[in-house]
């Protein structure tokens, strides 16, 4: 088990390094010049060169990359003299657009994206699994049909449409909820939830529909397994059979997908954040794209990749808990 974990962690580091390299190469051959963007109007060539040197953009690509990677662990200092900037471990570079370190920016925005992702995940798991399992246990009844038709329709709704509908219904028309603006959980949990409820719903509708479809299929499959028949034959109560045996085995594929989904969402739901105007990682990323803020683009990509890879690892480890057939 320890050996397995060590091997996997090594793999994770390798994957992240590869992603960093690819991202780096792509974005540092961008036609736009961050130095020119920072310099502003009427920028003399001399000043542009000075700014470029200050940003470290005059070094060759490989050099910039190795500086970046070692900088993550050892920290970096850019600029000289009184205006030198010190960026400590874990240094992901400095955003000249935001005048802030990339790491600090990410730490600042992550709670928003995480609140969005986790809240939505709780909702969609609850809704999706309930619907899926109910449908599976009442296979081919009217309930099953209705649930699945609803799920297919909901899964096909574009998120823009759902969001607009929610905003119109809950804010414009009835004034039940405030216009979303992020309030930290720590300062006012009730207001935090009220502000996030609509974004949660918008995301959850889509995912719950997908999870309902998936969990129904996987539940039907696992309920047909021989050991379920055995368990039933033993005279175990139906509830025990369904929850302890059927659901447990049926959840394995759901867990896999869930890991991927949550991992991806933690690093920002670009569209949902933009539709609701939430200051999360997704909006940070989108803003960075429109302003050519390369350190932030790189930072968010790495963060997102880390979440996905770590989520995958966590899921694989969880298998051992959920599915008794899996051993390491």
């Amino acid at each position: 088990m320890i050996l397995y974990l060590g091997r996997r962690l090594l793999g994770v580091a390798g994957v992240l390094l590869a992603i960093a390299a690819v991202t780096f190469t792509i974005f540092y051959v961008l036609p736009s010049d961050p130095a020119a963007a920072a310099c502003g109007k009427a920028c003399s060539d001399e000043r542009l060169e000075a700014i470029r040197a200050h940003m470290g953009l005059d070094a060759p690509l490989w050099r910039q990359f190795t500086d970046f990677v070692t900088g993550i662990f050892t920290g970096r200092t850019t600029g000289t003299g009184q205006y030198a900037l010190r960026c400590d471990f874990p240094c992901l570079g400095y955003s000249y657009e935001n005048s802030e370190g990339v790491w600090d920016l990410l730490v600042d925005r992550l709670p928003v994206s995480a609140s969005l992702a986790v809240g939505a995940a709780v909702l969609w798991l609850a809704l999706g699994l309930t619907a899926g399992v109910t449908a599976a246990l009442r296979k081919d009844t009217l309930t099953d049909r209705a649930l699945m038709v609803g799920a297919v329709a909901a899964a096909s709704l574009p998120v823009y449409f759902t969001s607009v509908l929610l905003i119109y219904g809950f804010i414009r028309l009835t004034g039940l909820l405030p216009y979303p603006s992020y309030v930290p959980f720590t300062s006012d949990p009730a207001s935090w939830a009220a502000n996030l409820l609509l974004p949660w719903l918008a995301l959850a509708v889509l995912y719950a529909a997908m999870y309902a479809r998936q969990s129904r299929g996987s539940m039907i499959e696992s309920m047909a397994e021989p050991y379920i028949r055995t368990a039933r034959a033993k005279g175990l109560p139906r509830r025990t059979v369904v929850v302890k045996h059927g659901l447990r085995a049926g959840m394995t594929p759901i867990l896999t997908v869930f890991g991927m989904d949550l991992g991806g969402l933690l690093a920002g739901a670009v569209i949902t954040e933009s539709l609701f105007g939430l200051p999360g990682v997704g909006r940070l990323f989108y803003g960075a794209l429109t302003t050519g803020d390369q350190p932030v683009i790189l930072g968010v990509t790495l963060l997102a990749a880390t979440f996905i890879v770590v989520a995958n690892l966590a899921v694989d480890l969880l298998y051992a808990v959920v599915d008794p057939r899996v051993r390491y």
Partner: peptide, 26 residues
């Protein structure tokens, strides 16, 4: 160069502005 983006009227008109890189190095 550490503080880019601002107006350049000073740089355009002041004597000795060419090549000057700010007070950072004293």
């Amino acid at each position: 160069p550490d503080l880019p983006g601002g107006p350049d009227y000073a740089a355009r008109y002041l004597v000795g502005g060419k090549g000057y890189q700010g007070p950072g190095q004293g």
